[in-house]
Design a protein around this nucleic acid. Structure first.
Length: 481
RNA sequence: GCCCCGUUCGUCUAGCGGCCUAGGACGCCACCCUCUCAAGGUGGUAGCACGGGUUCAAAUCCCGUACGGGGUACCA
């Protein structure tokens, strides 16, 4: 049997990190098995679904590099992969179920249901509605014929129970006393999530339903529905949820939850994927940094962990640094160029691009976020701006003025302007003035870059050029008196 | 309330009855390297929720308790 899995977000919000992980696990499982990865849009909630969210989900998935084989915008054997376009099919299924006596028209009002549930709870019993408030079949038929509006509920066999083997949770049992006669068709004729999602899974030939644990208790409904349709149930896989640092459900107040927010902050898709993969799965062999194709080879649903994972950005940040350092130098420059240009508010000239190329490898070693880069290279492309804290800490110390004066003297004498020549000149200055490297170079760093933290000094000076470097030393000297 | 799921360092995890004096990674601390900051290197810190069983032997199996998460809609 060929594996067919789907990622079926509902466009009622941005693709968040938990959704990204679910998509990734579906992708890994499909690729590992030579199966098909399908993208579907579970947009039965018209009121909350928007095109903005639909676009965000596609864009986020593409950014991550999780390409799907079939579904939204990719096409495939099905006519459509949007639930909002499959209304008639759902109504057809519901009609069949009603005809078979597996579902019924329900006239219970919200108030009646509310009372039913409250009373059940007060009695310490399950609040699951069992259909006991409904009229006889004949009455129901008459009322429907008379045009009275009603929902359609699935008739859960009672007594009974549903048992299924979840790949990560093993055998799970639900007594039907806990499963209510759930609504499958709203009174306005639209399907509920349970119906639409299950019908799609059946129609699309989904073999493995890999989704969040929040749907675990809905699974008996899906199993019942599937079997009522005369179909074979899928294998279910419920992934634990992602939590915030305080152990509570991950939400906005913990920081960013949207995948795209991480892209915008300067995270790399590969780092994101690697980090997300490790939240609930381990490739074994004590490996931590692992590429997508390697994950595909080693992925195994049976080893996915059962417990919720906390989304910890410290580790993500570290991992992003690892991936930045692993980037080919040219890719790094490409990735950072537009950020630098946005920061400067203008495009980089050809010679400035060369300068960026020169300094980039040194910055690449240090960055953990792409977005940190502009601030680190800004001194090369604009006027000097002093960080006052740095200035006060460094330029008021003994020897600072002497270092600047000495550097001016020695650098003026440099012939060919190169990293080596600059270093030789400055080290000679140190020896002559009997200054330690620390005391002698920090003032120069502040004079050149404006900050006590910068890319390596000699390279920075070499990249800045003779004129501008000497100019900055002069500016600093005059500011010090 | 009721139902379901879970519980190994602060965090992500390895572990599937003896290889565990519990391994790796992030974080943190120290040292080394060093022109700053990073990176890198070395070392260190810290954990089997608790209580009962089962067994010659339990982090690993069973039961209970506690705690956490999810569900309990004409949301998904």
């Amino acid at each position: 049997m060929t594996v067919r899995v789907r990622f079926a977000p509902s466009p009622t919000g941005f693709l968040h990190v938990g959704g990204g992980r679910t998509a990734l696990y579906n992708y890994l499982f499909a690729r590992n098995n030579g199966g098909t990865f399908i993208l579907r849009s579970d947009d039965t909630d018209e009121a909350r679904s928007t095109d903005e969210f639909r676009a965000d989900i596609l864009e986020s998935l593409r950014w991550l590099g999780l390409d799907w084989d079939e579904g939204i915008e990719a096409g495939g054997p099905m006519e459509t992969y949007r639930q909002s376009a499959r209304l008639s099919r759902y109504q057809e299924v519901v009609a069949g179920l009603v005809a078979d006596g597996k579902a019924y028209y329900s006239f219970a009002t919200p108030e009646q249901l509310d009372t039913f549930r409250k009373e059940a709870m007060a009695a310490g019993k399950s609040p699951a509605y069992d259909g006991s408030l409904e009229p006889s079949a004949a009455d129901a038929a008459a009322r429907v014929a008379a045009g009275e509006s009603a929902t359609v509920r699935f008739a859960v066999p009672r007594p009974g129970s549903t048992v299924f083997d979840d790949v990560v949770r093993e055998t799970v049992t639900f007594d039907h006393a806990q499963v209510e006669d759930f609504v499958i068709l709203r009174s306005n004729g639209t399907p509920t999530y349970h119906l639409a999602s299950t019908v799609d899974d059946v129609d699309f030939g989904i073999t493995h339903v890999i989704r969040g644990e929040d749907l675990l208790s809905s699974t008996p409904k899906h199993v019942l529905l599937t079997e009522a349709m005369g179909a074979h149930r899928a294998t279910y896989v419920h992934l634990s949820l992602l939590m915030g640092p305080d152990g509570k459900k991950l939400s906005k107040r913990h920081g960013h939850t949207a995948i795209k927010a991480y892209r915008d902050e300067g995270y790399l898709a590969d780092a994101m994927l690697n980090y997300l993969a490790l939240l609930g799965w381990s490739p074994g062999d004590d490996d931590t940094v692992i590429a997508l194709d390697e994950m595909v080879k080693r992925f195994d649903l049976a080893t996915v962990s059962k417990n919720p994972a906390i989304f910890d950005t410290d580790k993500l940040l570290w991992m992003n640094g690892v991936y930045i350092r692993e980037m080919p130098a040219a890719d790094f420059v490409d990735g950072v160029r537009s950020l630098v240009e946005v920061d400067l508010g203008r495009e980089l000239a050809a010679d400035e691009l060369d300068t960026l190329g020169e300094i980039a490898p040194l910055v690449q070693e240090r960055a953990k976020l792409l977005n940190e880069v502009p601030a680190q290279v800004r001194f090369l492309f604009g006027d000097i701006e002093y960080d006052e804290t740095s200035w006060n800490k460094v330029m008021t110390k003994d020897g600072a003025a002497e270092a600047v004066a000495g550097a001016t003297e020695h650098l003026t004498a440099v012939g060919e302007w190169s990293v080596e020549a600059v270093e030789a000149a400055l080290r000679a200055m140190l020896a002559e003035r009997e200054l330690s490297a620390r005391k002698g170079f920090q003032p120069l760093r502040v004079a050149i870059s404006g900050s006590s933290v910068s890319p390596p000094l000699f390279e920075s000076i070499a990249a800045l050029g003779r004129e501008r470097s000497l100019d900055r030393l002069a500016t600093a000297a005059s500011r010090m008196v």
